[in-house]
């Protein structure tokens, strides 16, 4: 009985994860300029990975009893790491792209750095 519920949970998380991964990739494809794409990619990926990791955790814990603690610790670590690494990484990329003055989508409203929008 328990593992049926667990299975359902695993599948749910899997779908959750896969969906976000797909969003990230798709956003990367469709959005016009660098900054938009960056926006989509990093957010989607972080959630996607965490979803998948939780699914994997449940799956492994359920499958065999060996060192569950180890797996859980790893999963938590990964998720935490993702939540830190991805934003920092994309921030850097954005700054670098700005410096390299990557092509900007024409519909841009304000360029914070050079002419700050005065309240």
């Amino acid at each position: 009985m328990l593992n049926i519920i667990l299975d359902i949970l695993v599948i749910a998380f899997l779908i959750f994860g896969i969906f976000f991964m797909f969003v990230a990739a798709f956003g990367l494809l469709r959005l016009p300029d660098v900054y938009h794409r960056m926006h989509a990619a990093t957010k989607g990926v972080t959630l996607g990975i965490s979803g998948l990791m939780i699914a994997a955790a449940i799956h492994h814990a359920q499958a065999h009893d060996a060192n569950v603690v180890n797996i859980i610790a790893n999963v938590v670590l990964v998720i935490m790491f993702q939540f830190i690494a991805n934003p920092v990484g994309s921030h850097l990329l954005a700054k670098a792209a700005k410096l390299d003055n990557a092509p900007v989508w024409e519909g841009q409203i304000a360029d914070e750095e050079h002419n700050p929008v005065s309240e």
Partner: peptide, 12 residues
Amino acid sequence: PHLADRALASDT
């Protein structure tokens, strides 16, 4: 087009 895109793509 731009290198930054490629970097992003490789990261994803």
